[in-house]
Simulated scan of single mutants.
Amino acid sequence: MFSAQGPSLRELAIQALSSVEDGYDRLAPKFDHTPFRTPESVLDATADALRPLGPFGEGLDVCCGTGAGMRVLQPLCEGRICGVDFSSGMLAQARGAHPDAEWVRADVRALPFDEGFDLAVSFGALGHFLPAERPALFAGVHRALRPGGLFAFPVGAPPPIASGWYWTLLGFDLAMRLRNAVWRPPFVMYYRTCPLHAVRDDLAGAGFTVTTTPLPSLGRRADGSARYRLVLARKAANVR
């Protein structure tokens, strides 16, 4: 799962016992050599689904990490593109890889933007927020978008209970809960705290109109349904 350029087991253990911010600062130089980076297939499928809805003006990557989301924003946005994250280490890597983009260090639960973007995206970040924190995150994205703006992110279908992935993700979440119960600072990363129905409710509560579209290039489940869907949360055109 890790290339030779990726982190060692010792480095991963240190990260796991750190806070989220410090952990990602430590992991940043080697993050793109881990399986935690959003796969290019997911980025490309997202861009393909968004292309008929564009072009867009200015774009924002929420929880940008090392900047993988720029693969989506750059071809779709005609204006500036910006990434926001609270890890200075991850932002340093992003800045080196994409010097023409704008990079902002901020807590995304209190985004420092006001109607500055037409498209916002996010990849693999929702598990870093407890359910009680999602409303503030989504409200901030809503505020950051211009009227008619779009917030888009892919969501995977839950694995069936008989699959190995179901038990792997359940075991990971249980291990993280145990770790956070006995160790401080906490490291918030859960895979099972953001089901699609709950995410839709929180987005609607923030003022978005929510639809989804399948990403068929990422495969299908045994019942024929898509393994991934793209959430499309639209800010009303007349909201000021």
Rank of each mutant, 00 (worst) to 15 (best):
R80A: 14
G96S: 09
G116T: 07
G224S: 13
P99R: 03
K30V: 14
G69C: 15
A68E: 11
A101N: 03
H197K: 14
V188C: 06
R10F: 11
R221A: 07
F138E: 00
G149D: 02
R105W: 03
H33K: 02
T168F: 11
A139L: 09
G149M: 06
A13Q: 07
A132R: 12
R220C: 15
H128S: 07
R179F: 06
A94S: 09
G69L: 06
R220Y: 02
P214K: 00
R26S: 08
G54P: 14
L126I: 13
F129S: 03
L203S: 02
V84R: 00
A162I: 11
T46I: 15
D44I: 08
D223A: 05
M70Y: 05
L169W: 04
L218V: 10
P35S: 07
D201C: 06
A233Q: 04
P216W: 07
V188Y: 01
A139V: 08
F31P: 06
E78R: 13
Q15M: 14
G96T: 10
T168I: 09
E115H: 12
E21Y: 01
D32P: 09
L17K: 02
G149C: 10
V20D: 09
G219D: 05
L145V: 14
A162D: 15
G207E: 07
A206G: 08
G148T: 05
Y24P: 05
P55Q: 02
D61I: 11
F151T: 04
G79D: 04
P159N: 03
P186Q: 11
F129V: 11
E58H: 09
Q5G: 11
L130I: 10
A222G: 08
S87A: 05
A16N: 11
R240M: 11
V84Q: 00
T193M: 04
R95S: 15
V104S: 03
C64F: 05
D85W: 01
C82S: 05
G224P: 10
F129R: 00
A198R: 15
L43S: 03
Y24W: 06
T66D: 08
V141T: 13
Q74P: 03
R95I: 13
Q15A: 13
G83Q: 03
C63L: 10
D173G: 06
E40R: 09
D61R: 01
V84G: 00
A16M: 12
L9I: 13
W167V: 12
T46G: 07
P160I: 03
F172G: 08
R234F: 02
D202V: 04
A222N: 08
A125Y: 01
L218K: 02
I81D: 00
G57F: 03
R134E: 04
T209E: 08
A45W: 03
P35G: 06
Y166S: 12
C82L: 14
L203W: 01
Q93G: 06
F36V: 15
F86K: 02
F187W: 08
Y190K: 04
V239R: 03
A206D: 04
G149K: 00
G207K: 03
E78D: 05
G54L: 05
S217Q: 10
Q15T: 12
D48W: 01
D201L: 14
R143A: 13
A110Y: 03
V20A: 12
I81N: 00
Y190C: 07
I161V: 13
R146D: 05
V231Y: 00
A16E: 15
A28T: 06
V199W: 02
A49C: 14
